[in-house]
Computed example of a mutant assay.
Amino acid sequence: MSIRPSNWRNWPSSNDMTLGEALAAARQRIDRLDARLLLQYATGCTHAELLARPETLLGTSARAQFENWVERRAGGEPLAYLVGEAEFRGRVFQVSPAVLIPRPDTEVLVEQAPLRLHGKESPAVLDLGTGSGIVAVSLALEYPSARVVAVDISAAALTVAASNAGRLGADVEFLAGDWYAPLAGRRFDLIVANPPYIAADDPHLAGDGLPFEPQGALTDGGDGLDCLRRIVAGAVAHLRPGGWLLLEHGHEQGAACRNLLSAAGFQAAFTHPDLAGSDRVSGAHL
């Protein structure tokens, strides 16, 4: 049963609410697109059906679900957590508050990875801090000859990632541990990582739905470079000769990442921008 706060006065009081009425009421509180998507998820209707038959009555359970979701979305909770899924590279991934919501910026990391595996047969690939598994699963599916291993310290995140791999048919080995801890003696042709890189004092952490996401996956609690430092420092012991390390990072951290890579003995350090032109992925090879 949904709990109706005092500000539900904009909703029709009749028990017989149509799809059109529900959508109109929701649009007074949340973004138009969010309202439509939530109504589609609550009812199972398509966009075309909502347009063609707005007079269709909203069922009792669907109405309760929709009202609950609208209230939570109005409070800032991300839409992806409400419906339990998000799209990444044309695939639908399950998400929960245990993992970050997939972002288009991370596609840069996935796109850059195969370029470093050209000509390698059955390359070994490691995804550190896999979260929902979007990088590991995408690489396993898009580069099927690769042997992909994914690590995360969060058992809850690994549960989500393993479920995504199973649903999408990706062959990924999942390991629990802090960065390289469960990988003693293992070496890879490519290591990729999208670690926490937001500084603890960054004001962006207070907005845009970020308070609802796992803080340990967003910030290292310091200057935003601590996890990047640890990954770079440990990579040398886990890369094969000529192996590559690719790191997603903040838009002002490209130079810092290149310096870390060069100082650790990596070669040909570079930074690649995202679609907005901001620094997003840096990498180098041994």
Rank of each mutant, 00 (worst) to 15 (best):
M1C: 10
N7I: 11
R9Q: 13
N10P: 11
S14W: 04
L23K: 04
L23S: 07
A26G: 04
A26V: 05
R32M: 08
L33N: 14
Y41C: 13
A42I: 01
T43F: 05
G44N: 03
A48C: 01
P54F: 03
T56V: 09
T56A: 11
T56C: 07
F66R: 10
E67T: 12
G75P: 01
G76E: 03
A80F: 06
V83K: 05
E85G: 07
A86D: 07
G90I: 04
V92G: 07
A98I: 04
L100E: 09
P102A: 06
D105R: 13
T106N: 08
L109M: 08
L115S: 13
K120H: 11
E121F: 00
E121H: 01
E121T: 03
S122E: 15
S122C: 11
A124Q: 14
V125I: 08
L126Y: 05
D127C: 13
I134M: 00
I134S: 02
V135I: 13
L141S: 05
R147K: 12
A150C: 03
S154G: 04
S154T: 06
A155G: 15
A161T: 09
A162T: 11
A162R: 15
A165Y: 08
A165S: 09
R167C: 09
L175F: 02
A176Q: 15
G177N: 01
G177F: 04
D178V: 03
Y180S: 04
L183I: 12
R187T: 14
F188T: 04
F188W: 06
D189S: 11
D201E: 15
D201K: 01
D202Y: 07
P203R: 01
L205A: 03
L205T: 09
A206H: 11
D208M: 12
G209L: 07
F212S: 15
P214W: 12
G216Q: 10
D220C: 05
L225T: 10
R229P: 15
I231R: 14
V232L: 13
V232R: 13
A233T: 14
G234A: 07
G234W: 08
V236A: 14
L245M: 07
L247G: 04
E248K: 03
G254H: 02
A256V: 00
C257W: 01
N259E: 15
N259M: 13
L260R: 01
L260S: 05
A263I: 08
A263L: 10
A264L: 09
A264Q: 14
F266M: 10
F270L: 02
P273T: 09
L275H: 13
L275E: 06
S282Y: 06
S282Q: 06
